[in-house]
């Protein structure tokens, strides 16, 4: 059993009890007979592979299309004709990429908080691999930070900061539409910039949805719920309590519980506002230049 599972669970006592539960077992007769058939299948495959293609039973066209062995002759026949087109397309793509690269870059990596690794759409990238990281974030759908945070600037629209041990998914930042991002775990901080179009960003978690008019705010997805702290402007927040969007103003905090308990409204938490103030100062300096 997993030794670390107690810390992941909210009910370690139950997990201790589960240690006593046993895995259901099959009858020995079934176990033995299935093994025999499973291994006999292996023998058939070996026999078929060594018998040669001429002795194989005819296969359907669909099988031939999906079977790599069946498709080799066709690929071989087409190879001399396909190759020049592949080459030309590759050259065109490379030229297009380098000529238009700067024009299409929308995101910039503006901080990596001391270095470390990130996982962008499944690729593990070290902060020192700046070109690779920059390319990956342009089209990223999912970003996970490990021990260090990551600051990203989207044109002059906003700066997005991901705290350490944070995972965001479903990133969608279309040029002329609503931006949205899903915070799975950790800290997501945003400060909007001079060209940010009001009410254009949605940040979602399991517990709440926020619509951002223009502000500096942070979302912290914690074990028991989601905390929203706002340090500038106003954030509209639906804490899924049936009241719809409610404003959370600068200096205020709204906490939505996983359990569905009534959301809590109070003063912003200093643990969350300090990195937000730092982000705000960073962005101000960035856009004053």
């Amino acid at each position: 059993m997993k030794p670390e599972s107690s810390s992941e669970s909210r009910d370690p006592e139950m997990e201790r009890l589960l240690v006593r539960a046993l895995r259901p077992t099959a009858s020995p007769a079934f176990r033995a007979s299935l093994k025999e058939r499973f291994l006999a299948g292996a023998d058939e495959v070996v026999a078929e592979d060594t018998a040669g293609s001429a002795e194989r039973a005819p296969r359907s066209a669909a099988e031939i299309r999906t079977d790599p062995r069946g498709s080799i002759p066709e690929r071989t026949r087409l190879f001399p004709f396909v190759w020049p087109f592949v080459l030309a397309a590759s050259v065109a793509f490379i030229l297009h990429f380098f000529l238009t690269r700067d024009a299409v870059l929308r995101w910039r990596v503006v901080g990596t908080n001391g270095g470390g690794e990130y996982i962008v759409d499944g690729q593990r990238i070290h902060s020192s691999e700046t070109g690779r990281l920059l390319d990956a974030v342009q089209t990223a759908h999912e970003i996970e930070t490990m021990d260090s945070g990551l600051r990203l600037q989207l044109n002059d629209d906003l700066v997005l900061e991901l705290g350490p041990k944070t995972r965001v998914s479903s990133l969608s930042f279309p040029p002329a539409n609503i931006y949205s991002i899903y915070a799975n775990v950790g800290s997501v901080r945003v400060t909007t910039g001079p060209t940010f179009d009001g009410n254009r960003l949605r940040v979602l978690t399991d517990d709440m949805e926020t619509a951002v008019v223009g502000t500096t705010f942070g979302i912290d997805v914690e074990k028991i719920g989601t905390c929203l702290c706002c340090v500038a402007g106003v954030v509209e927040c639906d804490a899924r309590d049936g009241r719809g969007m409610q404003p959370t103003e600068a200096g205020k905090m709204r906490f939505a519980f996983h359990s569905g308990a009534k959301p809590m409204l109070g003063d912003a938490v200093s643990k969350h506002t300090e990195p937000l103030e730092s982000l705000k100062s960073f962005a101000s300096a960035l856009w004053k230049k």
Binding site: E8, R10, D11, M14, S169, N184, V185, H258
Partner: peptide, 18 residues
Amino acid sequence: RNETAVRKRYSRALAELR
């Protein structure tokens, strides 16, 4: 499902099992 939803479902399973 996403990881958070799975974690939540696991916790619910333990609670319901209890």
